[in-house]
Every structure is written in structure tokens, then in C-alpha cells.
Design a protein around this nucleic acid. Structure first.
Lengths: 334, 334
DNA sequence: CGACTTTTCGAAAACGTTTGCCAACCTACC
DNA sequence: GGTAGGTTGGCAAACGTTTTCGAAAAGTCG
């Protein structure tokens, strides 16, 4: 590979001039700049990223850590993030946390190895906070997705899950249901708790007693939804609000295996509005989460912080907090 | 962040010794090694990856380029790759090619910037070959997934798609169907061509005339499957072999919208066996592709090449070629 | 105890960039 | 023609490692 020195030699100029020319810095005559650019092109020059980030202390890379990148739930978020990454020239480095950000050395590998300039952490569980103080202490920009965090310094973006749970449940109540169950997500995650909270509020508002028995524990995965629905079935509810679509798929299956019909015997409302949810039988009524926009926003926040830092401006000490709104998508399962 | 020099100073030793101690190299007394390790731990030392790869010319990173990481099709491959990556300590750097590897600078960014030590390229289209000669020329290890490439030097792994297409079609024939349509994938990809070929062979073997009219053009995406099925519907076929599950979902929808029943009016066989395919209505009969194993294998091949190179052994000039076998999964759509 | 071998350690170069600072050059103005 | 001021280019240090080579220390053996 050609280096900056090769170019300098050929152009009859010092390496530093080549660097400035290629980086569009002030202080090099336009004619020599053109000459240098031409030579660089002919040599197929591409800057060595290790050398560059060693001196600039920047990697132009952003780390994305999420539970499991292969969950369909994340597909749209990723697309949104990539959109911004492409715009701003950042490279995205994905890493699975498998429900536990703090465990494992991925985070250390990323931040201590200076492989990333900043982080987007989506869906960390509520018990984890030491990694947050670590990031704060090391002064590494990051944004939390799907988690509200009270410290004013941290950037968070999340969906109003309480409202979403409320909307789903209220919709079922308006449809005339009174015996409404809930399949909850993994309770170590704030989203699961918030959706339960919304469910409770709608119930309370309609004067329906909340019963712990009606909420079955799930794990946000299809199979967990299936199991939970089986638990719920004998209780005779006429409707179930399921904390996410993936579990709703499992619930649909359990219901169908029991020989019951959706929505006539049991109505189902999911959460998330995955791509597949319009293809289930029947198509799933659900709460849409603007995942693309949220992914995009998360990266916009991060890149703008990074930009501020690079330009040396004093960044505001306060983080950004953005709350997105859920939307009810009515299909045929309720 | 603490550097190797800090440790050296505290330990009263030269930086080079620290490096050797931390990398478990021969030539440092066990007692000093322990002392150094202890100090490193106390300081929370982590090697700066840029500095390291600048001198070693290795990034300990593998680039994975695929059409669209968020397609559910890839989820299992990714899991398989991650498994090996974790074992071997490599970091995975994903990049979407959006159906065109050569376009765009991702590849250059990765290889010319020396960000990756090797590449796994899954599903490049058949017209693209200049990137292959580039990689060969630059002597960058890579493995092609989902594409057979005749040059003996290149490592390829693929599924026997001809056989898969044959199995799917033959199954339908055995079920008594004679009017069997096909929804093809994007014809710029070898897999699409091979599955058509398998379809043709099964037809020929059963003495059924092949008619171009019976094969509808698709794009491997759900919506394309939906459209293609609509084209096929008026032709009165009693069965359709769909080139992948994602399109099969669209086909199922089109059929159901037309008021027809699967499998009674039209039988459907898909390809891939995605997670969702057991949840469709009716559950999809399909050809399974061992995606996890293929992802895993691709990275095993690459890492073993990388290991050989690092140890300085002369690698064999010939690449590895691995063909995986498809498997028929019978559910209820055919 | 001396000669030799082996082990342990240190100095320094190298990897490819960026950047602060200074020197040289050019322009223009008096 | 001299000087001030601005523009352009070069030198050298720095970033944090690894690695080569040689020196010093330690160990071995007669």
C-alpha cells in the first residue's frame, strides 16, 4: 500500500504537506494540492486508519451494543443508524450484549482499546449502572436507547411505553373486553415494567380490578410468549395485551393449537409492529414504535456531540432526553 | 488511559519488557511478569488497538459484508460467525452492501484502511468479480458465502441449491401436482439461478414440460413474492415452489387475499426455513438451509487462514470449497 | 574461579499519520 | 529597493505499541 511518504516523494514535497492537502487543510497552494490529489489517486492511496487514529485519538467509529443484533426488532433501528453513519462518515461497530452489557469485555475492548469514539447502548437492563458511571468518568459520549436514566448528563431516548401499554389496553376495553390478560416482557427491562404500568392504568381507569394472576411472565421471545399464553388460557380471558410482537406470535400459535379463534375467542394486541406482524394469522393489531426514527435519532445525537467535541466547543453539560410516541395500528387480531 | 510506559515506569522496567510480559512472550522472568500484570490490572490498562495494529499490521478484526444485515435470513449466519469470533478473539465489523459489493467505498475503507485482516462476503451478485481480483491481488484472505467461484484460490461455501430446488419441486410432484409454478429470486444471484435449475430438473424427470410462463420474477423480498404470486394466480397452478421463505410469506398473503386456501387450492414450498416459517398460516413447508453452520464454517475457514499466516507457515495456495446440503422440512403448506 | 551458555532486560527503531512551529518565499506597498 | 505582511512549505515531535538486537545478569560446569 502506498503511504503518504510515497506520495510526498513523488510530488517532491514533504509528507506534512500531503497530509494537509488530502485533508483539505488551509496552507497549501491549490496547484500543489491538485497535484498531490492526482498522485494519490493514481497510487490508489487510502489513509491507514490505525496510524491516523493513533495520533488524532479518534477512530471515526461508533460502537452499537444491543442485546442481539439478529432479533428482527432491531432491523429498523439499525437501518436508521446506518443512514446517519453514512451521512457523517462514521463506521458502525456492532456488538451483542446478550442481556448483559456489563458482563463480558466487549465494552472494554471498545472503549479502553479506543476502538470507538462513542457508544449507542440499546436496551440495557435496569440493574446495570456501573457501566454508565464508567462511561461518564472516562468522558466517553454515549446515548442510551430504550431506557430512561435520571442523571441529567446522560442522553436517553425512549418510547412512551406507559402510554403504549395504556393505548393497547384501552383499545381492548373499548372493544368491550373486561377480562384482559397481559403477557409481560423480561422484568429486568424498563420497557416491560412501563408497559405493565400502562396496562394497569387503563384497567384502573375503566374500573377493572387488576389481578396479578392475569399477568404472565414472558421474556420478549416467541417461545416465551407461547408458554405464557398456555398459562393464561385456562383463566378464561377474552383478550390479551402482549408486551411485544415476537411474544404475540407465540401467543397466536398457542391459541390456535388450543382450537380457539383470534379475535373471536381471544383478542390479541401486540407491541412494536414488526415487519412480520402484518403477515400473521390474523394480522396483528399492535402498537407501533418508530424504530427507524429512534435509531436515526440516537445516532444524530451522538454524532452531533462528537462534532462539537472535535470543533473544541464546550459541549453543554446536560444530555438530551427524547421521548417518542407510540401509535396504535389496528389490524384483525383485536 | 494508562499506557505501557506508565506501567514500565511504576514497575521500574523498560516498556519493551511490559509488552512482552503482557503478551505472554518468552524472555521475561516469571516474577517480574506477575508484578507487571498486577500493576496493569490495578491501572486498568488496556492496549491501544490503533498503536498495536499500526506496528503489527493486524487489526484482529474481520469484515463481514452482506446485502442487508437486518434481513432475518442472516440472523443465524451471524450467530454462527459470532460464535467463532468469540472463540478466536476477533472482532466482527459488519457492513451492508445493498446488493452491490463493488459499488461504494465500504470495501476500500475496510481493506485499504487496514481495518480488517480478512473478509467474509456473503451473497455477492454474479456480475461482480473485480473486487475478487482486487482481494486476490492485495493478498487479503476472504471467503465467499453463497457463491461458487471457479478460481481455485478462492474459498467458497454454498448450499447445494440445485438439489434444494429439485427436492422442493419433486416433493410437490410426489404429492400429485403437475401444474407447478415457481417464484424466482433476483436473477443476478447464483442461488436464484440454481434453484430454478433444480426446479427444471425435477420437472424434466417427471416428464412435465417446463414453461417460462410459470416462473415469475421475484426479488427475495416479501413484497416481491406477493406481486409475483398475483401474476401467477390467473395461470391456475396447483402448487408453487418459492425461491425463499420471505417471498413465500408474500405469496401466502396474496393467495389468502384471493380467497384461496393453502394447501388445498395451492400448495406452497419455500426455501431457507426462517424462524417465522413455523408461524405462518399454515406453517410453511420449506427447504432448510443450515445457516448457523454455514456462518460458523465461513469464519472457521477464515480464522484458520489467518492463523496460518500469522505463524508464518506457507499457506496452501488452494482455497477451501465447502458445499452444504439442503433438507426438506414438511409442515402444512404442502 | 573462569569460561561459557542461557536467561533477562533495555535501547532504539519502526509503523503511518497529524500538527505546532519556524523558515522561506512571494506580494505589495511605501 | 527595502520592509511588512501574508502565503506556502518543511522539520520534527508525537501518538502507543511491537520487535530486533545487543548488553547485562544469572546460571552452569569443569
Amino acid at each position: 500500500m502506498a503511504t503518504i511518504k510515497d506520495i510526498a516523494r513523488i510530488a517532491g514535497v514533504a509528507p506534512s504537506v500531503v497530509s494537509r492537502a488530502l485533508n483539505n487543510k488551509y496552507g497549501v497552494k491549490e496547484s500543489t494540492r491538485q497535484r498531490i490529489i492526482q498522485i494519490a489517486r493514481e497510487l490508489g492511496y487510502y489513509p491507514n486508519s490505525a496510524a491516523r487514529s493513533l495520533v488524532t485519538r479518534r477512530s471515526e467509529t461508533i460502537g452499537i451494543v444491543m442485546a442481539d443484533i439478529s432479533e428482527p426488532f432491531y432491523s429498523q433501528s439499525i437501518k436508521g443508524m446506518e443512514y446517519v453513519a453514512k451521512q457523517t462518515g462514521y463506521t458502525l461497530l456492532f456488538s451483542n450484549s446478550y442481556e448483559n452489557v456489563e458482563q463480558g469485555q466487549v465494552l472494554h475492548k471498545m472503549i479502553s482499546g479506543e476502538r470507538v469514539d462513542g457508544l449507542v447502548i440499546v436496551g440495557s437492563n435496569i440493574q446495570e449502572k456501573s457501566f454508565i458511571s464508567l462511561l461518564l468518568e472516562r468522558d466517553i459520549p454515549f446515548v442510551l436507547v430504550e431506557r430512561k436514566f435520571s442523571d441529567p448528563r446522560v442522553n436517553c431516548i425512549w418510547l412512551d411505553n406507559v402510554k403504549g401499554g395504556y393505548m393497547a389496553t384501552k383499545y381492548l376495553i373499548e372493544k368491550g373486553h373486561r377480562r384482559i390478560g397481559h403477557i409481560a416482557g423480561n422484568l429486568y427491562f424498563q420497557v416491560a415494567l412501563d408497559r405493565i404500568e400502562g396496562y394497569k392504568r387503563a384497567l384502573a381507569e375503566a374500573g377493572i380490578d387488576f389481578s396479578q394472576e392475569w399477568v404472565a411472565a414472558g421474556d420478549f421471545l416467541t417461545h416465551g410468549g407461547y408458554r405464557a399464553m398456555k398459562e393464561l388460557l385456562p383463566l378464561g380471558c377474552t383478550a390479551v395485551f402482549v408486551a411485544n410482537d415476537a411474544m404475540a406470535y407465540g401467543a397466536l400459535r398457542a391459541i390456535s393449537e388450543a382450537g380457539l379463534k383470534v379475535p373471536d375467542d381471544i383478542a390479541i394486541v401486540g407491541f412494536d409492529d414488526l415487519e412480520f406482524s402484518s403477515l400473521t394469522n390474523p394480522p396483528l393489531t399492535t402498537i407501533r414504535q418508530p424504530r427507524y426514527e429512534m435509531g436515526r435519532k440516537s445516532l444524530e445525537i451522538l454524532t452531533s456531540i462528537l462534532r462539537e467535541r472535535r470543533s473544541g466547543d464546550e459541549a453543554s453539560p446536560d444530555g438530551v432526553k427524547v421521548c417518542f410516541q407510540p401509535e396504535l395500528i389496528v389490524r384483525q387480531s383485536a
